[in-house]
Every structure is written in C-alpha cells, then in structure tokens.
Simulated assay, not measured.
Amino acid sequence: MKKLVVLTGAGISAESGIKTFRDSDGLWEGHDVQEVATPEGFRKNPALVLEFYNQRRRQLHDVEPNAGHFILAELENHFDVHIVTQNVDNLHERAGSTKVLHLHGELLKVRSTRDEHHILDWTTDLVLGDTDKNGHQLRPHIVWFGEAVPALEEAIDLAEQADFFAVVGTSLQVYPAAGLLHYAQPNVPVFYIDPKPAIIYDLRNPLEVISEPASTGMVVLKERLLAKS
C-alpha cells in the first residue's frame, strides 16, 4: 500500500468553525500572540494563558469534523495515510484517521511545567492550582513560539518515505512545518489545496495546486490519487 503523507493546517479546521490562527489584524481571538502563545507570556500572566486555551478547548466540544476530515479518513482504505497536522484540535481523530502526528501539541492534553514528558489527557478547564503529582503547575500541551517542536524529526522521516505528499489548508508561513514538503523525494507528486495558495519556491517535485477550500479540494485530491494508484 502506497504511503500518503498529508500536512494539514488551520484551513481544514476553519471549515468546522475553528478560527484560523491569526486574524488579518495579527491578533488571535483579540489577543497579541506574544501574550498567549509564548513561554514569556505564560510566565507574565499564566491565568490569562490558561483561560485563553480553556476557551479554545470549550469551542472544540461544539464543532464537528467536516468533509475534508472525513475524506482523509476514507483514504485509509486505499493508502497508508499519515497526517502531520499543525492543528491542535482532534477533528482528524474524530473523523476516523488513525495515524495523526500533532506538530504543535494538542488542546485535549496538558503537561507538567517541570517535566515535559509528564502528559495528561484533559477535557475540562485548566486553572492555576491544577498540578502534577509532585505539585508542579500544569500547562497546555501546546508548542509555543520559541519552543522546540519535538515531533519534527518524526515528521521529516514520514515526508522522506512518502509516495504522495499533500498540503491541505495551510499558508505555508509557519516554520519548520512549512518546510516539510521539501523533504519529499524528487519524484514524489505534491498536491497543494488552499483557496489562497502560497507560492512555493525551490520545489523539486511535480506540483498540482488545487485552489479550493479543504472540503471541496479533498474531493479533487481523492480523484487524482485514486487515478494514480
């Protein structure tokens, strides 16, 4: 079974009602990103940061996967599908995808501020005073700006093994995730689905751009992949 590696971004979740990472004014839900998505912001005002992610977590309970998510899950019937996502929601899993690698963490998990490997499932609000077993405050299991991306090496390995590589719903502006498609082998077809696709420079691969939202673009991608398999 051929390996399909898919990099997904905010665009696929936006169609389910989850706002994209930053609005055109550079704010995220009315907040400066430096306030709510950096270690410095957390040290300065941990209560604000915790409540910000509490709101994101609550929102996640009110949305559902969309057609784009479901088609990716269906493709597991034809390909060895590995999703590498920049999104912190669980919509891929809820749609039925079984191999999902979260580059930037997960909303429904938290971790110790002292031991980054002490990770817990978490579905409710996280507040000051919620601690690990040793009394250390818990924080969102999110990769903030300025922090290392632990899953990056695994993502690169997947990209290097791909028979097909697809990019869905991302502006390709956030690194290092945006550079993953350049690790695909030179003969591997690359498909890029986004209503406002970025220009991709220095790509060695055959590229097809599908200038559509994820839900309709995935219909086209499925047709293309099945024709090539």
Rank of each mutant, 00 (worst) to 15 (best):
P213V: 07
A159D: 10
P140I: 03
L172S: 12
W122L: 10
G146L: 05
H69N: 11
Y175K: 11
L181S: 09
V81Q: 10
Q173M: 11
G41T: 01
V188G: 08
T123I: 14
L221K: 08
A184D: 05
Q161G: 03
Q137G: 01
G105V: 05
R224E: 13
D62H: 04
G9W: 05
P150C: 09
E223D: 09
E93Y: 08
I193Q: 06
H136T: 03
L180W: 02
V188F: 00
D62N: 06
V88D: 07
P176H: 13
N66H: 13
A162T: 04
W28V: 13
H69W: 10
L75N: 09
E154C: 10
Y175M: 11
E35T: 07
T38F: 07
H92K: 07
E74K: 11
A10C: 12
R22V: 02
P189I: 08
T8D: 14
R58K: 09
A184V: 01
G11V: 13
G41P: 05
P206H: 14
F79N: 14
A67H: 13
N66D: 05
E160F: 11
F145W: 12
K222R: 15
G169T: 15
G217T: 03
V209T: 13
L27E: 08
V174Q: 03
N66M: 11
V81G: 09
H31D: 00
H92V: 03
L225I: 01
H92P: 02
R43M: 07
S215T: 06
L181Y: 06
N77S: 11
D80I: 02
R139M: 08
A159T: 09
T20Y: 03
V149I: 09
A148H: 07
R139C: 03
T85I: 08
I199Q: 08
P176G: 15
P140T: 00
I119H: 08
R57Y: 02
P195V: 14
S112Q: 02
V190L: 15
P189G: 11
E116S: 01
T85G: 10
N87P: 08
L138G: 00
L126H: 04
D62Q: 12
V63Q: 05
I83A: 05
Q86N: 07
H104T: 07
E51P: 06
L203C: 09
T38K: 03
N205E: 13
K109M: 13
P213G: 04
F42I: 02
A227Q: 11
L158I: 03
R56P: 11
P213Y: 07
R139V: 06
K222C: 10
D163I: 02
E40A: 11
A184L: 06
A10M: 12
W144P: 00
E154W: 12
D115T: 02
H92Q: 06
L126I: 00
M1A: 10
A151I: 01
P189Y: 06
V190H: 13
F145N: 09
G135F: 04
V63N: 02
D125V: 02
Q137T: 00
T123F: 15
L152H: 11
Q173S: 13
N90A: 01
L126V: 01
D80C: 00
H136D: 09
N77P: 03
G129Y: 14
N134G: 12
G41W: 04
R43Y: 10
H182V: 15
A178N: 13
